[in-house]
Amino acid sequence: MANFVLVAGAWLGAWAWDEVAPRLRAAGHGAHPVTLSGLAERQGLPAGQQTHVQDIVDEIERQDLRDVVLVGHSYSGIPVGQAAERIGARLRRVIFVDSNVPHDGESFVSVWPPLGERVRAALADNGGFWPPPTADDYAGQGLSGEQIARIVGGSTPHPGATLTEPAVLARPLGELPATYVKCLLDGDEPNPDVAALLKSDRWRLVEMDTGHWPMFSQPLELASVLLDAAAE
Results as ranks from 00 to 15, higher is better:
Ala16Pro: 06
Ala16Cys: 09
Trp17Tyr: 10
Trp17Lys: 12
Asp18Phe: 14
Val20Gln: 10
Ala21Lys: 12
Ala21Glu: 08
Pro22Met: 11
Pro22Tyr: 15
Pro22Lys: 15
Leu24Ser: 12
Ala27Thr: 12
Ala27Gly: 11
Gly28Cys: 15
Gly28Glu: 13
His29Tyr: 09
Gly30Gln: 03
Pro33Phe: 09
Pro33Met: 10
Val34Leu: 10
Leu36Asp: 01
Ser37Gln: 12
Ser37Ala: 15
Gly38Val: 03
Leu39Arg: 14
Gln43Glu: 14
Gly44His: 08
Leu45Gln: 15
Leu45Pro: 08
Pro46Thr: 10
Pro46Val: 13
Ala47Asn: 03
Ala47Asp: 09
Ala47Leu: 07
Gly48Lys: 04
Gly48Ile: 11
Gly48Leu: 08
Gln50Lys: 04
Thr51Gln: 07
His52Ser: 12
His52Pro: 13
Val53Asp: 07
Gln54Ser: 14
Gln54Arg: 14
Asp55Lys: 08
Val57Thr: 13
Asp58Ala: 11
Asp58Val: 02
Glu59Ala: 14
Ile60Thr: 05
Gln63Asn: 12
Leu65Ala: 01
Leu65Ser: 05
Leu65Gly: 05
Arg66Glu: 13
Asp67Gln: 09
Asp67Ile: 02
Val68His: 05
Val68Leu: 02
Val68Ile: 06
Leu70Tyr: 04
Gly72Cys: 04
Gly72Trp: 05
Ser74Gln: 01
Ser74Gly: 06
Ile78Gln: 01
Ile78Asp: 00
Pro79Met: 01
Val80Glu: 01
Gly81His: 02
Gln82Lys: 01
Arg86His: 10
Ile87Gln: 06
Ile87Tyr: 07
Ala89Thr: 11
Arg92Met: 05
Arg93Phe: 07
Arg93Cys: 04
Ile95Lys: 13
Phe96Val: 04
Val97Ser: 04
Asp98Asn: 14
Asp98Leu: 08
Asp98Trp: 07
Ser99Phe: 07
Ser99Gly: 09
Asn100Met: 11
Pro102Glu: 00
His103Lys: 09
His103Ser: 10
Asp104Cys: 11
Asp104Leu: 10
Gly105Asn: 07
Val109Thr: 13
Val109Lys: 06
Ser110Glu: 07
Pro114Gly: 11
Pro114Cys: 09
Gly116Pro: 13
Glu117Asp: 15
Glu117Ala: 15
Glu117Lys: 15
Arg120Ala: 04
Arg120Tyr: 01
Ala121Asn: 09
Ala121Ser: 10
Ala121Pro: 13
Ala122Leu: 14
Ala122Ser: 08
Ala122Phe: 05
Leu123Pro: 06
Ala124Cys: 08
Gly128Phe: 06
Gly128Lys: 01
Phe129Ile: 04
Pro131Asp: 06
Pro131Ile: 05
Pro132Gln: 07
Pro133Trp: 14
Thr134Tyr: 03
Ala135Pro: 12
Asp136Ser: 15
Asp136Asn: 15
Asp136Glu: 15
Tyr138Thr: 02
Tyr138Trp: 12
Ala139Met: 13
